[in-house]
């Protein structure tokens, strides 16, 4: 589904990603861990099409398309979704309107009919129930005045409505309380399926108890330096990253 080869990217002239390679097959869940500043969000943003980052080398194909050639909106229409580490606030646009507009753009690109407000409201109600968000959030401006955890939950709501093929969750678990963590994880698990893949960026092994990944990768200084199964996360939790650093130094 997603094939990343030797991806290099710079921001404002500084090299951040230095040769990431990653293969994600349909239905797989990949967790990406790594110390602060190692480039996890940069990787997520580059996949989503943020033009503030310059890709200098490498390739990314998604469902057979050269992802790097596509603007962000076309990537979204193709099924790439990014849950932001820091979702922005949008004044004056309700959550419901924002999502309806986005969903309809995606539907149009697939030759599907747009949903009218009535049908959309019904869909939104179901999805809000699924991720346990108070219905009143539908009419509040996007993320405005939301608490940190509410913003993260709202990202998951958006994912549930847009039903992407590849969801990249950038530290969606940070800032969630214990109940919210469970609700969000259950939401993700409900969306898991043979055609949908996930890249989950997290600092905490705990999340991976709820969302059991197929692979765990360690991103370090802009490259994946170690990969394994879910047990790698446990090992990292126990030993920290120094161990990875040492291994790298001796290699």
């Amino acid at each position: 589904m997603l094939s990343v080869k030797n991806l290099h990217a710079k921001v404002e002239g500084n090299p951040i990603l230095r040769g990431i390679s990653l293969e994600v097959k349909p239905g797989e869940v990949h967790a990406i861990m790594g110390p602060n500043g190692s480039g996890k969000s940069t990787f997520a943003q580059v996949l989503a099409g943020n033009e503030a980052y310059d890709v200098t080398e490498g390739s990314v194909t998604f469902l057979g398309e050269d992802l790097l050639e596509l603007p962000a909106e076309e990537r979204a229409r193709l099924g790439v979704f990014l849950a932001f580490q820091y979702p922005v606030e949008i004044a004056g646009i309700s959550n419901a309107y924002f999502l309806q507009a986005g969903l309809n753009e995606i539907r149009k690109s697939h030759g599907l009919e747009e949903l009218d407000s009535m049908d959309f409201r019904e869909l939104l109600r179901e999805k809000m129930e699924m991720v346990a968000i108070d219905p009143k959030f539908a009419d509040r401006p996007v993320n405005q005045g939301f608490s940190g955890g509410e913003k993260k939950r709202n990202e998951i709501l958006q994912m549930a409505v847009l039903e992407p093929r590849l969801a990249i969750l950038d530290e969606t678990d940070s800032g969630l309380d214990i109940d919210a963590l469970r609700v969000v994880s259950e939401g993700v698990n409900k969306l898991r399926g043979p055609d949908r893949s996930f890249i989950i960026v997290t600092h905490y092994q705990r999340l991976l108890n709820y969302i059991v990944p197929d692979y765990v990768h360690v991103l370090f200084q802009g490259a994946i330096v170690k990969s394994g199964d879910k047990d790698l996360a446990l090992e990292l939790e126990e030993k920290g990253y120094d161990w990875v650093r040492e291994e790298l130094a001796t290699a």
């Binding site: 962000a72 979204a76 990014l82 932001f84 924002f98 999502l99 753009e105 847009l162």
Partner: peptide
């Protein structure tokens, strides 16, 4: 960019 990642 946020709008664009939602397909707009």
């Amino acid at each position: 960019f946020y709008f664009r990642t939602r397909g707009m």
